[in-house]
């Protein structure tokens, strides 16, 4: 079994970084995780965002959080990206693959992936 010593080693590595995480998060990625989101496939989408943000080394400036039903169930999985000083971006019909591209191009590169946004999606 994974040992608690390994967890303690992770703790020692993380400890210096914890203070950085507070207050400095410029970007918030919010994944809808109500019944509608979950049945449409939100769980792998959420986990892809968590993993990609960490792999990109952005954990200090980007938080990935969950929320309930946003009210547009037919577009689930829905992901909203909030950035200080910018308009909210709503991505719809999300997949883990799309999440990877959004982290690359939008979160990291600053360019909204327009084709995945709600404005460009027909039902």
């Amino acid at each position: 079994m994974k040992s608690l010593e390994e967890l303690a080693a992770i703790r020692d590595k993380m400890k210096g970084k914890v203070s950085l995480r507070e207050g400095e998060n410029a970007i918030r990625v919010v994944v809808g995780m109500a019944t509608c989101g979950i049945s449409a496939g939100a769980r792998p989408v959420l986990n892809a965002f968590v993993e990609e943000v960490s792999n990109a080394g952005l954990s200090d400036s980007v938080t990935v959080t969950q929320t309930g039903c946003i009210g547009i169930c037919q577009f689930e999985p829905v992901v909203e990206v909030f950035e200080t000083g910018k308009e909210k971006v709503t991505y719809v019909k999300m997949t883990a693959e799309k999440a990877k591209r959004i982290v690359d191009e939008h979160i990291k590169g600053g360019k909204v992936v327009a084709e995945y946004t709600i404005g460009n999606t027909k039902l």
Partner: peptide, 9 residues
């Protein structure tokens, strides 16, 4: 105090 939601955890 290291949060449970940090990716390595």
């Amino acid at each position: 105090g290291v949060p449970l939601d940090s990716f390595p955890v």
